[in-house]
């Protein structure tokens, strides 16, 4: 099913194999070059869907919840009880709404990657992970500075408890890993996973067509194997999607917990 849904538009055009980075740049819509693409629209759809879903689910909360309310409570409950509380303790509950929103947004935009007909996650464009990482980055630094004041926050983050003569070696490493590596890896990890996932699915699906169109007749049956791989890897991709959304939120909470910590 999935293969068919993906292959329909491919069948129409000619098959470009192997797929290249060009696959990720879909044509502009309504002639608004550089302003409106499939990606822009799907991000807005994700935002709208989440707002509507949570508003409807909590519009009339019941003691015995409806299915929508149960789902919304499960998402929020997971963010609060499995991420915010274990990582940040009781004061972490105030971050739970942000974690729940972040988790559901990343999960939904990642899921686009395997939804038939859409087949590409908006997070395959690094701009979106960069913005998400920037929000988390500004947030954990702001929270740390607000709690400790700038000087004490910098001292907490940069100066580990070690003999003084080894500090000059350690402080640049702490600076680099806290203020430079953290936001970059946060954005890159999500982007690279979604990008690679889309590429792998494209390789096996388009590879099936390339084999089917091959001049050599005995290459043709191998296309079934290629599509079988595409289906199997779609399930692997589902796992990656869940894991990456979870990891992004866990790391954000861990950075906040580091910013709030008194001493190392």
């Amino acid at each position: 099913m999935r293969v068919n849904a993906l292959s329909a538009p491919v069948m129409a055009g000619d098959v470009h194999f192997p797929p290249s980075v060009k696959e990720f740049f879909t044509p502009a819509l309504f002639g608004l070059d550089g302003w409106l693409t499939k990606f822009t629209i799907f991000v807005w759809v994700a935002v709208a869907l989440l707002i509507i879903f949570f508003l409807v689910a909590y519009r009339d909360p019941k003691l015995v919840p409806s299915r929508a309310q149960w789902m919304a409570e499960a998402v929020y409950g997971f963010a609060r009880d499995s991420i915010a509380r274990p990582m940040l303790g009781h004061e972490g509950v105030r971050f739970a709404p942000y974690f729940a929103a972040l988790l559901s947004f990343i999960l939904l935009t990642n899921l686009y990657g395997i939804i038939p007909g859409i087949q590409i996650s908006t997070n395959t464009h690094i701009a979106y992970p960069i913005v998400l990482a920037a929000i988390s980055y500004v947030m954990f630094n702001y929270i740390g500075i607000r709690k400790h004041g700038f000087v004490k926050y910098m001292k907490n983050s940069l100066v580990p408890s070690a003999p003084w003569y080894i500090l000059p070696l350690l402080i640049p490493i702490e600076f680099f890993s806290t203020f430079i590596v953290r936001p970059i890896t946060l954005a890159l990890r999500l982007f690279a996973n979604m990008f690679a996932g889309h590429m792998i699915l494209a390789v096996f699906t388009l590879g099936g067509f390339a084999l089917l169109n091959a001049q050599t007749w005995y290459f043709k049956p191998i296309s079934v194997l290629s599509w079988g791989m595409a289906v199997a890897l779609t399930f692997l991709e589902a796992l990656v999607i869940l894991l990456q959304a979870y990891v992004f939120v866990v790391l954000t909470s861990s950075y906040i917990s580091g910013a709030l910590a008194e001493e190392h």
Binding site: V64, P65, R67, W70, E73, A74, G77, F78, S82
Partner: peptide, 8 residues
Amino acid sequence: MNQPPQRP
């Protein structure tokens, strides 16, 4: 499917 909210 009226289940009580699950607490992970």
